[in-house]
Design a protein around this nucleic acid. Structure first.
Length: 359
DNA sequence: ACAGTCACCCTAGGTATAGT
DNA sequence: ACTATACCTAGGGTGACTGT
């Protein structure tokens, strides 16, 4: 059993650290969410609790007793939430300070955790708190292009990073905005499009991806927006189309995806494959152009030598006077034509002898 | 009804001690 | 020195219980 023993007798396991990290990164979470994240496994395409909820509660209680978590009832009749303490935030090394519950966004924040749980798996989820914390530390450390005090423009509810390094901003809408506001947000995201996924992105660690995101000023490959209401989703989709039409060149690099929050699906992670296909085509085109260039420059260097020219002229003179008693000289046009023909013959000969220049 | 806690039991790993 | 055993501590499972 790999576990660390802390003063109070609690042996801290790797899973405990996962719990602390999960809670710290999201700010707070219900026991059920902690259970699904840290006491679960993937089965039948979704997260399933691997132990009983009693087990989860008991473990959480121990962490609360050890001053590593705080338990707080926020709304009457609703499950309580667990929050990180300063000690656990340091212990989990998640790079985020302990959170406070904000009543205005309480429902939304818990819904974001649910969304993250549904979308995590092969993908990495970077929380809004992680982004903000990184942006602040980057601004203090002088690294990164920070557009606003401690920020990288609009901070999404989370970042979804595909195994190939494709970065999608995730937004969860549980209330609704007016059309102009949607348009405004989409314009902002289109401005932050990322033209290319960097080479080597699939091999980078989540914290390197977060650093790259903050360092680039919040560049993204797409926006996945999840809605509870189909009509709001439709309005947002129209706003996105408008933003795309305004700036077609940039929006090619920033895809939009509109999902159902009650049954969230992953956005289409296709950019990496498309990028590789484009690179392959560009490479092919480059090689074809280089080949043409070499071919042209090679043939353009082919000239008739003096000896060859006089041989060509003699040969044409002989052919012209074949069967004549009184031979005639070649006219100027005939000479020029003969030399052109001779040069063409020589180049034809080159083509046969240097097939690598002719494919 | 549901969130959360407690008691009891079993299992597993770590450590001290006795026996060879 | 090595091995076997006992004991302690903590994790995990289940059912019962409490409080709202």
């Amino acid at each position: 059993m790999s576990a660390r023993r802390r003063g109070g007798g609690l042996r801290l396991t790797e899973r405990d650290l996962d719990v602390l990290r999960f809670v710290a990164c999201h700010g707070f979470a219900t026991a059920e969410q902690v259970g699904l994240s840290c006491f679960s496994g993937w089965g039948d395409g979704r997260l399933e609790l691997g132990v009983s909820m009693t087990m989860v509660y008991r473990r959480l209680k121990k962490l609360v007793d050890a001053d590593l978590l705080r338990h707080e009832y926020v709304l009457h009749g609703r499950p309580g939430v667990y929050l990180a303490t300063r000690r656990s935030a340091e212990l989990a090394d998640a790079g985020v300070p302990p959170a406070k519950v904000d009543l205005k966004s309480f429902d939304h924040d818990l819904a974001v955790v649910d969304l993250a749980l549904a979308l995590e798996g092969q993908t990495d989820w970077i929380t809004e708190r992680q982004i903000r914390a990184k942006a602040v530390s980057a601004a203090r450390g002088g690294g990164g292009r920070v557009s606003r005090a401690g920020g990288t423009g609009r901070t999404p509810d989370g970042l979804l990073v595909s195994p190939w390094g494709e970065v999608w901003a995730v937004e969860l809408e549980i209330s609704g905005k007016d059309n102009a506001r949607y348009l405004d947000v989409f314009r902002g995201y289109v401005r932050r499009h990322r033209e290319r996924i960097p080479e080597g992105a699939p091999e980078t660690w989540p914290d390197e991806r977060l650093a790259a995101y903050v360092g680039s000023g919040g560049e993204i490959d797409g926006v996945a927006w999840y809605f509870r209401s189909p009509s709001k989703r439709e309005r947002a989709r129209r706003a996105a189309e408008e933003a795309e039409a305004e700036d077609f060149r940039r929006s090619r690099h920033c895809r939009f995806f509109f999902g159902d929050a009650s049954e969230p699906r992953w956005p289409p992670f296709e950019k990496w494959d498309e990028q590789r296909e484009q690179d392959r085509r560009a490479d092919l085109e480059r090689r074809r152009a280089a080949h043409e260039e070499r071919k042209y420059s090679h043939l353009s260097r082919v000239r008739l030598t003096e000896q060859e020219a006089s041989y060509v002229l003699e040969e044409f003179h002989r052919r012209k006077n074949e069967g004549r008693l009184l031979p005639r000289r070649l006219t100027e046009e005939e000479e020029a034509w003969a030399l052109r023909e001779g040069l063409e013959m020589k180049r034809e000969h080159e083509r046969e002898n240097y097939p690598e220049f002719w494919g």
